[in-house]
Nucleic acid binder design. Sequence first.
DNA 1: AGCCAGGTTTGGC
DNA 2: GCCAAACATGGC
Length: 287
Amino acid sequence: MNIQWDNGTLIIKGIEFDPQLTLIDSAQSFVWREHEGRYLASVFGEPISVELIPGGLLIYPVSELEVERYITYFDLARDYNKIAREYEMFPKIKQAIELLPGLRVLNQPTWDVLLMFIISANNNVARIKKLTWLLGEYFGEAQSLFGITLHQLPSPEVLAQVQESELRALGFGYRAPFLIRTAEMVRDGFPLDELPLMTYSDAHQKLLELMGVGDKVADCVQLFGCGHADAFPVDVWVERLMRTWFPEMNSLNKPKLQRASRELFGDNAGIAQQFLFHCARCGLMEL
DNA sequence: AGCCAGGTTTGGC
DNA sequence: GCCAAACATGGC
């Protein structure tokens, strides 16, 4: 990986990164949008853009102090080829990783992931995107980059003050009180910032205290927002694919399947999960 | 009309 | 502890 920073522009060469796949299509973040070849979002309280350039990736604006933060956010330091090789004994995983070059597992702010995946419960990707967008548009700070208006997601303090009826009117349905209740808990001291430092199990148990967070949402928050690469979210697609491609899982109920998969796939279970999930959901591998 | 979507909560055993 | 039903919404 070759990193060049000059006056707010960060150029990274020698890595594979597919912004369309990672930021838009893979359903791990719902804040990004594409506009004329650029991918835009408000992250870490400021607007940011990503675009592919010949031989690399251009990120703007980035201060010199933020370079490391964005390397981490886009997970550019992880060696995905090495992970593929380490899954030699699981051909389905190796195959899935090789089918999706440039897909990376983002390391997003914990709070953002928490909001997006409370919304995701028993919901479809198009509507999760729409509702995430509405949350920012109505309650988050507006910002602008290249003439495009972007919105941050609301802070816990702001969201905790929103009326349930207001969220329901926007289409959040029964998730409305979950979002508000969780915002109150985080505002009142729930230790979101400590989760990345905790073990998988400790963080998982802690997250379950939040309203609207069950096993699956907790795993997503840990994988996409706490750096817990060993978290293994089991949604309807992953349950389906595990039962088909790993028939030994068929005798297990969902919680046991989750635990067994996580233990079977080890420290990078969540990385593997993301590739399997996308392959199954988009029909790249036959179920 | 009925089923599905990156499930969680609640209540009954 | 395990299981079923209820829960909002929109697309097909």
